[in-house]
């Protein structure tokens, strides 16, 4: 049974494609903390598997060997009340195992939790919202949402990313299994975590602490890029929103509707913080924290009827006439 699912999972473990995968298996780590945990977990698994095999075979043996056979006479078996040596033995051995387990865990706890960061480590402040992620890069002074971009730590160069975890409303939890264990985002409490990805690619994860109606669709993805691509991305994000005259109409709609109270678009009067920053909306692959691909008809649908994509999200349906709708979507599409 345990053996069964251990085998299956280790089977999956081997089956894992090397590199980031859409299946966020904890047995396919690609970042320093995830690796430390991975090694510990293999150690613990093997200990537990051994204990299981030993004790399980004892049970099975006893259950079969000492079953009542029809051939038996009906007199009672010898009455044994206990044996101090044996009982002592199976008290002491588990104690030793427990000590080992404790030391192993303590080592990794220390390695991951008390890690020191170089002063130039990249800082990100992740804030959990119902039901989306806000990522702020204090050093670079810009804000984005739902898709966290970080540089890779490859060929000898180590670029750990230090993430401050806050919450704007309820508890959430930051979990990208291939990069690190989860850490909760809790209102008026400062939590921290860190990652150090070794491979370029997109890593998926999602909110792992129940936070309300749409906890299920509070996905997030971490885009690990080469340092050069990362810098390029940073430069794009720092730039204010593009202002092409073709979409001036859409911009007017945005600024004259409630949108501006909840969303920020740098360079316009819209500076709300309740919803994701839309300055570079089109630089993201998905909308509504991974609920749908970021393309024209999804955007239109989202603005018309958010519940169609993400029932229970906190963005109200905006009753706009078709003209405004088209203009607005055109404007959103222009936010490269």
């Amino acid at each position: 049974m345990l053996a069964a699912f251990l085998l299956t999972s280790s089977g999956l473990l081997l089956a894992q494609p090397a590199g980031p995968s859409p299946i966020p298996s904890i047995f396919d780590p690609h970042s320093t903390p995830a690796h430390d945990i991975y090694h510990l977990s293999l150690f613990v698994l093997s200990i537990c598997a051994t204990i299981f095999l030993v004790v399980f075979s004892l049970i099975v043996y006893a259950a079969f060997k000492y079953r009542h056979r029809p051939s038996d006479d009906d007199c009672e078996p010898p009455q044994i009340y206990g044996s101090n040596q044996v009982e002592l033995a199976w008290t002491v051995i588990p104690i030793l195992i427990v000590v080992v387990l404790f030391l192993a865990s303590a080592r990794v706890i220390h390695a991951v939790e008390d890690a020191q960061f170089p002063p130039d480590a990249i800082q990100v402040t992740a804030t959990g919202h119902q039901f989306w992620w806000e990522f702020e890069y204090p050093k670079y002074g810009f804000v984005t949402a739902n898709e966290l971009h970080v540089p890779v730590s490859a060929n000898g160069q180590s670029l750990p990313i230090h993430i401050m975890l806050l919450s704007a409303d309820t508890d959430h939890s930051f979990w990208v299994p291939q990069l690190a264990g989860k850490t909760d985002l809790i209102p008026n409490r400062r939590n921290e975590t860190w990652i150090e990805p070794h491979e370029v690619g997109i890593y998926v994860g999602q909110c792992a602490q129940y936070c309300g109606t749409q906890h299920a669709k509070m996905l997030l993805s971490v885009v690990v890029q080469s340092p050069e691509d990362f810098q390029r991305w940073v430069q794009e994000q720092k730039a204010p929103a593009v202002m092409s005259p073709q979409v001036a109409e859409g911009r007017r709609v945005f600024e004259t509707n409630a949108c501006m109270n909840c969303h920020t678009i740098t360079g316009t009067i819209a500076n709300g913080r309740f919803g994701p920053d839309l300055t570079h909306l089109m630089s993201r692959k998905t909308i509504a924290s991974g609920a749908a691909p970021n393309d024209e008809q999804n955007l239109r649908l989202w603005v018309k009827e958010p519940d169609a994509i993400k029932p229970g999200s906190l963005m109200p349906a905006m009753q706009l006439n078709d003209h405004d709708q088209d203009a607005l979507v055109a404007y959103l599409m222009s936010l490269q």
């Binding site: 977990s41 613990v44 537990c48 865990s105 850490t183």
Partner: peptide, 14 residues
């Protein structure tokens, strides 16, 4: 016991 190993639980928890 696997869950009791805190780092393992950081992955398995919830």
């Amino acid at each position: 016991i696997m869950l009791a190993a805190a780092p393992f639980d950081w992955q398995l928890g919830n």
